[in-house]
Simulated assay, not measured.
Amino acid sequence: MTSIGVLGTGIVGRTFAARLAELGVDVLVGARTADSPSLEPVAALGVRTGSFADAVAHAEVIVNATNGLHSIAALESVGAEALAGKTLIDVSNELEPVEGGFPKPLASADDSLGQRIQTAFPELRVVKALNTMNCTVMVDPSIVEGDHVVFLSGDDAAAKDQARELLATLGWRPVQVVDLGGIDTAAAVEMTMSLWMRVTMARGSDAPRFNWAINSG
């Protein structure tokens, strides 16, 4: 994979930017405006920056690393026409802030951010992936030993192939990639964030990174 656009300048976006640049991928990270102060830490990594629209125009494959509460608004600022035909790998989670505690995942069995993005932009090819783990594991699965997994949810087979290509670039092996089916299955993976939060709290913030695995006889 030679070029990627990344939407978002938070910890997830910066982690993707640094890792992709390290791997030799031509990456451009976008914020709401090209002169946003939030882009300064990204530029310090030696990574190209611009607006959300610039990031979308940069590559056929886009990583949505925006705050899930604002993802649809970020995409609306780009426009449906510019997004048409692009593949969006949505790694975000919609998390409601909780004063003094961990944020609350908002996904339910009948609703997910991935589904709503696909509905809002029907010509955008949405693949939900990587949202079930810490961002350091997203970009470097070797951090966790064994055949822990990453899930794919999406309606477009070609877009899923592009997602697999990005995953392979990041170091994910085919045996670790589990295709759950259509974008409706994004609800299930987004709901796992409630469990992820509880496990993280129980283990403590200083515990080694972890991820989910599927073990069978």
Rank of each mutant, 00 (worst) to 15 (best):
R125F: 05
T185D: 01
N134G: 15
L88C: 11
G79A: 10
A159H: 08
E96R: 13
V199A: 14
Q176K: 02
I89W: 12
P208K: 00
G46D: 05
G100L: 08
R19I: 04
M133Q: 15
I4N: 07
L23K: 15
L95G: 04
L167F: 08
P141N: 07
D54P: 11
L7R: 07
S112T: 09
E123S: 11
G114R: 10
L23P: 09
G182C: 06
P174G: 04
W196T: 13
G10R: 12
G171R: 06
L170D: 03
L130S: 00
L180T: 02
D26L: 05
L88W: 09
A18L: 11
V199H: 05
A109H: 10
L113Y: 00
A82L: 13
A207W: 04
S71I: 08
V12G: 01
D179G: 04
V150I: 13
G8W: 10
G146E: 02
S3V: 00
R19P: 03
G8F: 11
A34D: 10
R203W: 11
S108Y: 01
A55K: 05
F210L: 06
S51E: 09
V56I: 11
P97G: 09
D206S: 14
V78F: 00
G46E: 08
L7G: 06
V78M: 03
L170F: 06
P122A: 11
T200M: 12
A80S: 15
C135K: 06
G217W: 14
I4R: 15
A18R: 15
D140I: 01
A53R: 15
A73L: 07
I117E: 01
V78A: 00
M197C: 09
E22S: 12
L95M: 14
G13E: 06
G217A: 13
N211D: 10
G10W: 09
L75R: 11
A82T: 13
L130W: 05
P37A: 14
S153P: 09
L69K: 05
W172S: 01
D156Q: 03
L88V: 12
A73R: 02
A80Q: 07
V98Q: 12
V29R: 11
A43F: 01
L83F: 06
G30A: 04
D179R: 00
R116C: 02
A74V: 02
G101A: 14
A107W: 04
L180H: 02
E76N: 12
P141R: 07
L195S: 11
A17M: 08
I11D: 11
G204Y: 14
V27W: 11
A17W: 10
G79S: 11
T33E: 12
G171P: 02
L106I: 01
W212G: 00
E60C: 01
E99T: 08
Q115K: 13
L167T: 06
D179F: 08
V178A: 02
A168N: 09
S108A: 12
K86S: 08
I214T: 10
G181M: 06
M1K: 08
V91Y: 12
V199N: 06
I143L: 15
L23E: 12
E94R: 14
S194I: 06
E60S: 14
V29K: 11
L20K: 02
V27A: 13
R116K: 15
S38G: 11
G217M: 05
L124P: 03
E96D: 10
A57T: 12
S194V: 07
N131I: 07
G114W: 04
S205F: 14
D184G: 13
A65L: 07
